[in-house]
Design a binder for these strands. Structure first.
Lengths: 184, 184, 184, 184
DNA sequence: TATGAATGAGGTTTCATTCAT
DNA sequence: GATGAATGAAACCTCATTCAT
């Protein structure tokens, strides 16, 4: 791993562990086994690290989606079926909350997060359209929106209660999403 | 307004504006037009201010619920119908995100938020039970859970996109909730 | 007790309990059951309270000495024999240390403490002279000096070890002083 | 001098000059000609600085003792004979008083001072034993105790009177100690 | 390129002192 | 006289950032 990615990885680890505001540059440097000064050779400042982290998460999600096999409409949907995708999401729960929170105040983050979401949505809609050319695009968008809403809800709940997604929760969410999809 | 509430109000304003971590005691004092020292006459420390803020939000929600007229089962539900309730929620969105985020790292906050949620849930279940004595309690709990999930999702979305709840969003959420309720 | 003495008494209690620097005006006021503002009606500032306290201690010692029965030269001396005097001294140990310590830096305290010591010494020498008119004054002064030295040592030791003067310590000190006195 | 020792030296100077409670981190930093932040690179907190200072004093005393030539029993003892030892002690007088005073209220300091005293005592007893193998250990301990008592007394007196040890005081103390030692 | 010592602004909190009531 | 709310300077400590080596 090159220095840039090494630092980014360390930043991710620290922020997951300590939270956005408690992950100091020193922590990150120690975690990456480099000097504090070196951080500033690869990133302009702390904000830029967050920026890169968000970009990373988005790219990760996109690549997860790329791998995703086409869903069989007749089978019940399991939005957690790609276990590695959701494992990742769980890992990121705390960081995502922090970043979302930070984004409410920081224009740069906010723009970034919004762009990321739009990119993701476009990506999802595009591939759904390929599968179901006859369907109305607005339905895709709604689906995506609801799913996002629920996932965000789950994230917050997890953060709040401090537990990971267990089977009960997983089934409940799936039931809701399935009902929504088939009700259309 | 007495000094205690004045400071609390200022704290709320600052946190909404600048975020949890950037609302310094000095900021709050300046916003309340008092000296920094005075803050500590009314609150033990910064944590206590947050504590009071969360308690305030919870009590507010409870009193909103108390005012809520019995819902006519045959009419579609509008969870935003109490516009002042949601206006309040929107005001609190940023702060709630920050606090939820901070709660993932701070034991005291986490306990506080958990307590608040339990208190709210108990309150809701109790009043639903009064209205529908024959219904199974677990259904109430599920309903509450889903609603919470969605509301949390909405909060995050709002924070993320930086806009308030518009009509489109409102109708979409309502549609989902209504479908869920009648599917049961 | 008048307000002035009430406050002084409270100050003494607080300083014994919490130490010189940790006894705040608020503490003292609370202990005296008066408002903080009132303190400043009776004392110019915190320094003046110390000043008054030191004066008090000196006067107390003088009055203890006044009560002291003439010592029988043929009996071994017990410098702790006036148990109430030493009880008082023990009570004051911590405060005396603090004040002595503060006096090293504060001209006003230093002058005060020096004056107090001289006053006490003169008082002691005067009464010893009355008892033993033939003896050389320098002997009295030496005796007084040594006794003071030892008492101060005892005070520091007590402060250091955190215990009060026990029988063993008492006998040891007495043995030393007796030897000194009779060696002359 | 390395930064660590530079800061420690500055701390010592400040404490001697201003006293324990008035030697602020900022003062110390200014005195050492470094930034306040740097202090915390070398010491965990203010307490640690004191800790290091006390340790320094103890080590200094021990090394002074190591250099001390064996005393000729037939010659009168001069406990100030190692003039550099006592010069050092005088330098430390103010600080020692403050620390002793602070130790009465602070568990950590108290433990520190107690340990230091025990270490010194053990050191002294050990070397006396080497010189006089036949003598009872309790005699050494008593001697040490009395000497300590007197030294503490001298320290307090010096602090109180604000002067350094002059010849008169020196001779008086020596006379006392000699009498004590030979009376045994 | 890489280090980590150094900086200093800024955070929370305490407390002697003042002053309107 | 008496109160206690209010002030604000100053304490300790943290951390993003810079820079000599």
């Amino acid at each position: 791993m090159n220095r840039h990615d090494l630092i980014l990885h360390a930043a991710r680890t620290c922020m997951i562990e300590k939270g956005f505001h408690n992950a100091s540059i020193k922590n990150i440097a120690a975690c990456a086994n480099v000097s504090t000064g070196l951080i500033y050779r690869y990133f302009e400042n702390k904000e830029s690290i967050i920026e890169a982290l968000v970009r990373d998460i988005v790219n990760n999600m996109k690549s997860h989606l790329d791998d995703k096999p086409a869903r069989d409409e007749n089978q019940p949907l399991d939005i957690f079926q790609r276990s590695d995708f959701f494992a990742d999401l769980q890992d990121n729960i705390f960081m995502l909350m922090d970043i979302a929170s930070a984004a409410t105040r920081n224009t740069r983050y906010k723009k970034l997060v919004a762009e990321a979401h739009n990119a993701l949505q476009d990506d999802i809609v595009r591939r759904e359209k390929q599968q179901h050319p006859a369907m109305n695009e607005s339905i895709f968008r709604t689906r995506h929106y609801v799913t996002t809403l629920l996932l965000d809800g789950v994230i917050v709940q997890c953060g709040r209660k401090g537990y990971v997604v267990d089977d009960e929760l997983r089934q409940m969410i799936n039931a809701i999403v399935n009902k929504l999809l088939h009700a259309k």
